[in-house]
């Protein structure tokens, strides 16, 4: 089979991968902010729950978490039917990445000097204004390189969705490879990931450059 036939098949899978990628970012970044806020919360039981959540999310393989989200409803909770495969993947990815993002955000928020909050308080900014005008812009600058790291990892992690038979790029490439007795499809899939991550890297470099106007 030549490339002209292979590429449309892989492109279709890549579209699914990008959907997983985009939806995960869409949900996990705001969720990560909420989790980081809860982790810094003054009520101990809330912190314990958040700590346990982060420990589990970072301490077990994502591939296992995907399987758990997909199989647990029927096997543990006696649901009639398993959840939608695609959305099971989105849920698993989102709660997993939120745990990582939460720790990055917490580091970023704690890196903002205390004096910034005091100055904001003295000038009369309310909590919302302080967060959006003073804290968040400085947090974004601090966390951007670490977020870039996670985002790049996420692009490659989308290939884990194959474990519950979601037809993303890697699953389709593997299928093509075995039917054709060729590693070519896998190699081409690798190029897809690589080029996409190259773009992601350029985007983050651009972001860092845009924020380099202050120290």
């Amino acid at each position: 089979m030549d490339l002209t036939k292979l590429l449309p098949i892989l492109a279709e899978g890549f579209l699914v991968s990008i959907k997983i990628f985009a939806l995960t970012l869409l949900f996990s970044i705001p969720l990560g902010f909420v989790v980081s806020a809860l982790k810094m919360c003054k009520i101990p039981p809330v912190r314990w729950i958040i700590n346990a959540y982060i420990l589990i999310m970072r301490g077990t393989p994502l591939i296992l978490q995907i399987m758990f989200i997909y199989f647990a409803p029927t096997m543990l909770f006696k649901a009639d039917a398993p959840p939608d495969r695609f959305w099971a993947v989105i849920v698993a990815f989102s709660i997993n990445y939120a745990a990582y993002f939460a720790e990055i955000f917490r580091g970023g928020i704690q890196a903002v000097p205390k004096g910034q909050f005091e100055a904001a308080q003295i000038l009369g900014f309310n909590k919302m204004q302080t967060f959006f005008k003073i804290t968040l812009p400085q947090v974004i600058k601090t966390v951007l390189p670490s977020i870039g790291n996670e985002v790049i990892t996420l692009v490659k992690d989308t290939s884990l969705a194959q474990v519950i038979a979601v037809s993303e790029l890697f699953a389709l490439a593997k299928k093509q490879a075995s039917t054709q007795f060729s590693v070519m499809p896998l190699f081409v899939a690798g190029v897809f990931y690589f080029v996409f991550n190259w773009l992601v890297t350029l985007l983050f470099d651009l972001g860092e450059k845009k924020l380099s106007y202050y120290k």
Partner: peptide
């Protein structure tokens, strides 16, 4: 009232 800090605490961004 206004307060001027030892370390200025200007908003760097």
């Amino acid at each position: 009232v206004g307060l001027v800090f030892q370390n200025f605490n200007l908003f760097p961004h």
